[in-house]
């Protein structure tokens, strides 16, 4: 195995958008990052776009409500102290602060156009 890559554990696939990529760690602690801690259990890999070896990239995690695996893209999920997939956010929209509600509304109209 390529030393700079870490061992591939499996393939991460977003259940919302189908984006997929191999992942090399799962959890709150990306390897070799000292003080950095993730606030959720994440699927991640070495950042393929950064020449430095220790840089990581979070691909996604599980929605705290429906437990679906989703990517971190804004079309699929948001993080607000926890990970929520967009369908779950919409379902519980009233519990989210106004800023997030507005954001989602904007997204909807943008999509319609």
């Amino acid at each position: 195995m390529d030393t700079s890559e870490g061992t591939v554990i499996g393939v991460f696939t977003c259940e919302q958008c189908d984006l997929s990529s191999p992942y090399t760690f799962y959890g709150q602690k990306p390897p070799n990052t000292r003080a950095i801690v993730l606030l959720e259990e994440c699927y991640g890999m070495r950042d393929p776009f950064n020449p430095e070896r220790e840089k990581f990239l979070v691909l996604g995690s599980k929605c705290c409500l429906c437990k679906k695996t989703v990517c971190v893209g804004t079309e699929c999920s948001i993080f607000y102290t926890k990970r929520f997939c967009l369908p779950c956010v919409r379902e519980h929209l009233e519990q989210f602060p106004e800023q997030i509600q507005m954001e989602l509304a904007k997204k909807k109209t943008a999509k319609k156009m």
Partner: peptide, 28 residues
């Protein structure tokens, strides 16, 4: 600000919005 979060707070989300809550990383 803040008129929304009056309903059942079953998700346990902070009532005051802070961009900080949107970040899933912390530095110790």
């Amino acid at each position: 600000r803040k008129k929304g979060a009056t309903g059942a707070a079953d998700l346990g989300l902070p009532k005051e919005y802070d961009p900080r809550y949107r970040i899933n990383v912390s530095v110790r």
